[in-house]
Deep mutational scan, measured.
Amino acid sequence: MKGKVVSYLAAKKYGFIQGDDGESYFLHFSELLDKKDEGKLVKGSMVHFDPTPTPKGLAAKAISLPLE
């Protein structure tokens, strides 16, 4: 699924993505496929991810940034 980063707290390594389906997904650095892309996780960045339901809500897994 595609989505847009709505927040990312680099110090805490987490944030949120708004998916194309309108839902909010929890984003964690550990799910970023290329850790070098962390600096690109800023508000408004477009990402691809696997939407995954968890006991705490919806989460983004296997997060990647589109090729530039």
Rank of each mutant, 00 (worst) to 15 (best):
H48N: 10
P51M: 05
E38H: 07
T54M: 07
A11H: 12
K61I: 09
G15C: 03
E23I: 11
Y14W: 12
D21G: 04
F49I: 02
G15L: 03
V42P: 02
L58G: 04
F29W: 14
G44L: 03
F26E: 03
K13T: 03
K35N: 06
P66M: 15
A60K: 01
L67S: 13
I17N: 00
K36C: 12
T52R: 10
V5P: 01
A62C: 12
G19E: 00
K40D: 04
F29L: 10
L58N: 08
A11L: 10
M1A: 07
H28Q: 07
G22K: 05
S64K: 11
K40M: 09
K35P: 14
M46T: 14
S45W: 05
V47D: 01
M1Y: 05
G44K: 03
Y8T: 03
F26W: 08
Q18Y: 11
D21A: 04
L67N: 13
V6C: 12
G22V: 02
V6G: 05
S45V: 15
T54V: 05
S7W: 15
S7K: 14
P55G: 08
K4Q: 10
D37I: 08
V42F: 09
K40E: 04
T52C: 13
L27Q: 00
K2I: 11
L33C: 10
Y25G: 01
A59T: 11
L67C: 12
D50R: 12
F16Y: 08
D20S: 10
K56Y: 10
F29N: 04
L41E: 01
L58C: 08
S7P: 00
K40Q: 07
K43H: 10
A10R: 13
I63N: 02
E31C: 06
G57D: 02
K40T: 04
P53R: 14
D21K: 03
K56T: 08
L41W: 01
Q18P: 02
L67V: 13
L9P: 03
K12T: 12
A62S: 14
V6L: 13
E38T: 05
D34H: 09
P55D: 10
K4P: 02
E68F: 11
G3P: 01
E23M: 13
V42M: 10
A11F: 10
I63H: 01
Y8S: 03
L65I: 13
L9D: 15
G57K: 03
A59P: 01
K13G: 11
K43G: 06
G19N: 03
V5G: 01
T54F: 05
M46Q: 12
K4T: 13
S24P: 06
G15E: 03
P53G: 08
K12R: 11
P55Q: 09
S64D: 05
H28K: 06
K43E: 08
V6W: 07
D20A: 11
Y8F: 04
D20Y: 09
S7M: 15
E68T: 12
D37S: 09
A10K: 14
L32N: 00
A59K: 14
V6K: 14
F16C: 07
L9M: 13
V47E: 01
P53D: 12
Y14F: 11
A59V: 15
K4N: 07
I17C: 03
E38G: 06
L67G: 13
